[in-house]
Amino acid sequence: MIIVRQGTAQDAPELVRLRLLMFEAMQGEARPGPWERTAERVLRERLGGPETTMGVFVVDDPAAPGRLAACAVGTLEQRLPAPGHPEGLFGFVFNICTDPASRRRGYARACTEALLAWFDERGASRVDLHATADGQALYRSLGFTEHSVPLSRKRGGSGS
């Protein structure tokens, strides 16, 4: 049986470790840097509060106490309501990762299902994510479909 629990501020270092592994899988190389300290600080701050807009669900590594086997992390955003989104609540999943030694056991699915239930409980009318080719089958099996791709702008306006 897979036990999924809500992440806590104490999980911040492990969540950052898994996030680095996710970027390595997506980009073909690890990209450590100052972002890791900032990510850990943000996680500690956001997960330490009583009413957070960040959902974090984890599976502990049964073979390595203190380590996480998998995680799913997302945020709930309040936008202006619209006809198709009467509450204006949107979810965005930005981190799903399983440690390579723990893959193919259903951990990512279990964490993602818990995160989607968290979004549902809060009334999110749509949940978005960016998927790698490897993750698309999982996300499609959970009800994700194609959606229009918005334009993006990076700071400085260059778009590159």
Rank of each mutant, 00 (worst) to 15 (best):
Arg79His: 06
His147Tyr: 14
Ala12Gln: 13
Ala64Glu: 14
Val16Ile: 15
Arg126Ile: 03
Arg79Ala: 09
Gly84Leu: 06
Gly91Arg: 09
Asn95Gln: 14
Ala110Phe: 00
Ser160Val: 02
Ala70Gln: 07
Val93Trp: 12
Gly135Leu: 13
Leu138His: 08
His147Trp: 05
Ala124Lys: 05
Thr53Leu: 05
Glu45Asn: 08
Pro65Leu: 14
Arg153Met: 04
Ala114Met: 01
Asp99Trp: 04
Met22Thr: 06
Gly49Val: 15
Gly74Arg: 08
Ala110Ile: 05
Ala101Met: 04
Pro81Gly: 10
Gly49Asn: 11
Gly33Leu: 05
Arg41Leu: 07
Ala30Gly: 07
Arg46Pro: 03
Met54Leu: 12
Arg5Tyr: 01
Leu68Ile: 01
Ala9Ser: 04
Asp60Asn: 08
Ser152Asp: 01
Val58Arg: 00
Leu47Met: 13
Ala82Tyr: 07
Arg140Val: 15
Glu45Trp: 02
Val58Trp: 00
Arg44Ile: 02
Thr75Trp: 06
Gly156Met: 08
Arg67Gly: 15
Gln27Lys: 13
Arg37Val: 06
Ser125Tyr: 04
Asp11His: 11
Ser160Tyr: 03
Pro150Trp: 01
Ala114Asn: 01
Ser148Glu: 15
Leu138Lys: 11
Arg155Asn: 15
Asp120Thr: 08
Ile3Met: 02
Ser152Val: 10
